[in-house]
Amino acid sequence: MATHEREIVDPVDLCRPDGSLDPAAVGWSRVPVHRANLRGWGRTKRWEHWCVTTPTHLVALTVSDLDFLALNSVYLLEFGSWGREFEHAAIVPFGRGVRLPDRIAGPPGVADVVVGPARPTGGQVRIEIRDEAGGVRLRGRCLTPDRLPVDIDLLVARPEGHESLNVVVPWDARRFQYTSKQTALPATGRVRIGAERLEFGAGESWAVLDHGRGRWPRTVDWNWGAASGRSDGRTLGLQFGGRWTEGTGSTENGVCVDGRLTKIGEELDWRWSTTDPLAPWTIRTTASDQVDLVFTPFHNRSSHTDLGLLANHTDQRFGHYDGRVRTDDGTEIAVRDLLGWAEDVRMRW
Rank of each mutant, 00 (worst) to 15 (best):
V12T: 13
T235G: 07
R130Y: 01
D131E: 15
P149C: 09
A334H: 06
G249Q: 05
V168F: 04
L278A: 14
P277W: 05
P117G: 01
S302K: 14
V26G: 04
G319H: 06
G254K: 05
R39P: 00
R130K: 13
Q177K: 06
L100E: 04
R336A: 13
R346Y: 10
G40W: 00
A342Q: 03
S273W: 09
N312F: 13
L77D: 11
R99T: 13
R234F: 02
G40Q: 00
G265S: 11
L76Q: 02
Q177M: 13
A173K: 11
R260Y: 11
S228G: 14
Q177A: 07
R39F: 07
N72H: 08
V191S: 08
W222H: 08
E7P: 09
V74Y: 09
T144R: 06
N300A: 15
R43P: 01
G237E: 07
A207D: 08
T235S: 13
R215E: 02
W171P: 03
L307G: 00
A173R: 15
G201E: 14
V294L: 04
R99S: 09
L66F: 09
A111H: 01
T53L: 04
G83I: 03
A195G: 08
D151S: 04
V294A: 15
L185K: 03
Q124W: 11
I8K: 03
A90G: 06
A36F: 07
E85D: 14
T3N: 09
G259W: 13
N253S: 04
V63E: 07
V255F: 05
H320C: 12
E48S: 06
R6F: 02
V52T: 10
T262E: 11
D151H: 04
G42W: 05
G340Y: 07
A157T: 12
R84M: 10
A24K: 11
G189V: 10
L77I: 03
P107W: 12
N300F: 02
A342I: 05
S228F: 02
S288D: 04
S288L: 08
G42Q: 08
L138C: 02
P145V: 09
E132K: 08
E132L: 10
L100H: 03
L155V: 09
D337W: 06
L238Q: 10
D102I: 00
R230Q: 11
W28K: 04
G203A: 06
P55H: 13
V191W: 06
H313M: 10
L339I: 09
A279H: 07
R35I: 08
D344C: 12
R301Q: 07
A226C: 08
V125K: 05
G233C: 00
W272G: 00
W270R: 04
V257T: 15
S303G: 03
R16E: 11
T53S: 07
G123Q: 15
A25M: 08
T314W: 10
G214E: 12
E267P: 01
Q316F: 10
W82N: 14
A70F: 11
W82L: 15
L238E: 10
D131M: 02
D232Y: 03
S205A: 13
T331G: 05
D289Y: 09
L155R: 11
V220Y: 01
V136D: 06
G259Y: 07
D10N: 12
R158V: 15
P117L: 01
P170W: 10
P159G: 14
T121K: 11
G80M: 12
R39K: 14
T56Y: 03
F79T: 03
R175I: 09
V294R: 14
D322N: 14
A157G: 05
T331I: 02
V191C: 11
L155D: 01
Y178Q: 06
G265A: 14
